[in-house]
Design a protein around this nucleic acid. Structure first.
Length: 370
DNA sequence: TTGTGTTTTATTGCCTCC
DNA sequence: GGAGGCAATAAAACACAA
């Protein structure tokens, strides 16, 4: 489509239209079919023909002719007649309002555009230029008009036909201009909304990321504790039943204290692991470690990584420990007595004897809850 | 003054709804 | 099928640094 680039057109116009009408006519042809249809046809019929018929290559004669013909009106009016019928309304200015509604508000542009720069020149070339270019002008709405539209948009961003007509009347715009403004305004609003949503999501992501990193650190810390405890428990299992003496010699810290205590209590609590086996609840292991269960309850994970949680359904972190590590942990930490299950299917409180020698008081860490 | 980036106005083509 | 909305885009208007 023909692009009405102002600088190029101005150069061409200055170059050719200041010489003679023939070259001007050639330029008309060069400008292509759209120009011929929209501008050239009407222009030549109404005014341009006089120039050429009179043999007046000077375009200023054209405006003089039109002004003389049209009386004391502005030079815009003939084109109004071309592009608009019945534009006599005081507020609705038709094409004129479209191309120069800033004049309505008495505003004057501060830009340095080609059209503005020559609007107030007084030579004949620019008189022609007004006819030549005004339909192509695109001027911005005045501040008052924008403010009015903004308020209307705030009340409702959809535009009913009646409201559109009313706004157009009030603002001296074409209804289509109002519709376009609302359409573009909705697009801008949507863009802003997307930006806000993105920022909110980004903030949420950052927050979750911090939480996740903290959880990772916590997990590593707990994992290290598990390894330390595992290393302490392994020789105990290998050493047989004399756990109490071993712990008495090697234990340090609060977890080992109950072992010492249990040792001192005598036979009943000395060999808690063996006691578990004797209770005949080893079958519970197969119930708990059901490979088909989506949320298997790993005694190691649940009790160590979820301290104090009495209602866990722990999601196994497959990537955390390798299968070998988990197996070794299960074997070392989970003797046959873990997770006893009653006949009726209800889980009972963990037997105090099934605590690897740790007392019930350590539930905060060894949480045998179901 | 000029080049360049941004904003605003307007068009086009497609889609949906009545 | 016409009206209206929307996304993509063009182009004019504008702001601003060099």
């Amino acid at each position: 489509m023909l692009s009405f680039n102002s600088s190029i057109m101005y150069r061409i116009y200055k170059l050719h239209f200041s010489s003679n009408g023939l070259e001007a006519y050639a330029i008309f042809l060069w400008l292509g079919p759209l120009f011929c249809i929209l501008i050239g046809l009407g222009f030549i019929l109404m005014a341009g023909g006089r120039v050429y018929n009179d043999g007046c290559g000077n375009i200023s004669n054209l405006s003089v002719l039109i002004q003389n013909q049209s009386g004391p009106c502005t030079s815009q009016q003939p084109l109004d007649g071309l592009f608009l019928s019945g534009s006599s309304s005081s507020s609705f200015l038709g094409p004129r309002s479209m191309v120069s509604f800033q004049d309505v508000n008495g505003e004057k542009g501060t830009g340095r555009s080609f059209f503005r720069s020559i609007d107030h020149e007084e030579n004949g070339d620019d008189d022609f230029d007004e006819y030549f270019h005004h339909p192509e002008k695109k001027r911005r709405l005045g501040a008052d008009q924008v403010q009015f539209l903004e308020k209307s948009f705030e009340s409702d961003n959809k535009l009913e036909p009646e409201r559109k007509i009313q706004l157009a009347k009030d603002l001296g715009l074409q209804p289509r201009q109002v519709a376009i403004w609302f359409q573009n305004r909705r697009a801008r609003w949507k863009t802003k909304q997307l930006e806000k949503d993105y920022e909110a999501l980004h903030a949420s992501y950052d927050s979750l990321k911090v939480d996740y990193e903290n959880l990772l650190k916590e997990k590593d810390k707990l994992k290290a504790e598990v390894l330390v405890l595992t290393e302490k428990l392994l020789p105990r299992e290998k050493g047989g039943g004399d756990i109490g003496q071993t712990d008495t010699n090697n234990s340090q810290g609060p977890l080992q204290k109950p072992l010492v205590d249990s040792t001192s209590e005598g036979e009943g609590s000395k060999l808690s692991i063996v006691a578990c086996k004797q209770e005949g609840i080893s079958s519970a292991k197969s119930d708990i470690f059901d490979s088909e269960s989506p949320h298997y309850t790993d005694g190691v994970h649940s009790s160590l990584l979820e301290p104090g949680d009495s209602s866990y359904v722990f999601e196994p972190d497959q990537s955390d420990l390798s299968q070998d590590e988990e197996d070794s942990l299960s074997k070392s930490l989970l003797p046959a007595c873990i997770f006893p299950k009653l006949e009726d299917g209800d889980y009972s409180d963990p037997p105090e004897t099934c605590n690897f020698g740790f007392p019930v008081e350590d539930h905060a860490f060894w949480s045998w809850s179901y």
